[in-house]
Design a protein around this nucleic acid. Structure first.
Ligand SMILES: [Mn+2]
Ligand SMILES: [Mn+2]
Ligand SMILES: [Zn+2]
Ligand SMILES: [Zn+2]
Lengths: 137, 137
DNA sequence: ATCAAAATTAAGAATCATTCCTAATTTTTC
DNA sequence: GAAAAATTAGGAATGATTCTTAATTTTGAT
């Protein structure tokens, strides 16, 4: 594992913000000013495909990276774009896995919602959004 | 609702392939050769944000669009990139929703795995991939 | 240690998906 | 049926990610 890989792994594993590649690159430059953006992308891809870290996709945003800790899902606020973790109970996990048989690698659970901050900050607008939305649950 | 919107909605709702914007554009041109690619993107965005259709994000792929039928999750083969639907049981749905309180808009459940076809087509390679992978369930 | 082969990197060009801009066209309102 | 508002086609612009290449670092056999 090269210095660059170690640095990048460390940044992802110590972050609780689900950072993008660009954000990881900015942080990496603090410790290693010569690092190239392509190196960050390449190593993020390597680390992801070996399962060292986790890659998250949200519509309209650049990809985000997450550490692998206890399995958890994500609450995604459609108003501010914020992403928070939530616990996946063993029951829920087993229910999900029962659907897929063997050869399962991982699973991603994302709940799209309007977070508390956005709801109080802009109550009428958030409520309108929620009301106009054709919900699918 | 304009002719273009109607056409695009129809294509998404009649497709079972989770098509990308580019694929929808190609199909749209069959019926309306003058339609512009920007129009497809703009209307897909409008339809998505009003909840008429559903937008799916998978790492490293362009965004995909899905009709809204009974709630379902997605099985994503990491080998071939194929995407298939799976039923979400009411139990599973309720478990998921219990995590998010009110103000929920939708939820996405994706299981990453290696599909049957890929497993038999390239048994040793798929098994190696599965073995080298640090699973997170 | 010494050298050659293999892997990784920095830098920046290239690509791909998506959005933005503008003038023309269509739809709505009065 | 004219004026105003909304939508479109077409293409330029943007942003994220990958690709290319030459230089540097690591590996590993002598
Ligand atoms: Mn997380
Ligand atoms: Mn589907
Ligand atoms: Zn929010
Ligand atoms: Zn497959």
């Amino acid at each position: 594992m090269t210095k660059q890989q170690e640095l990048i792994t460390g940044i992802v594993n110590s972050s609780r913000n689900h950072p993008t590649a660009a954000e990881i690159y900015i942080e990496a430059r603090q410790k290693m000013p010569s690092i190239a953006v392509g190196t960050v992308y390449r190593n993020l891809k390597l680390l992801t495909s070996s399962g060292e870290i986790r890659k998250l996709s949200f519509p309209g945003q650049p990809e985000r990276y997450d550490r692998i800790e206890h399995p958890h899902g994500h609450l995604h606020c459609v108003a501010c774009g914020g992403i928070n973790d939530f616990e996946i109970s063993p029951t829920l996990r087993d229910e999900i896995l029962a659907h897929a048989g063997e050869r399962v690698i991982s699973c991603d659970v994302t709940i799209n919602y309007i977070c508390d901050e956005c709801a109080v900050a802009n109550e009428n607008s958030a409520n309108k959004k929620l009301k106009n939305y054709k919900r699918r649950l």
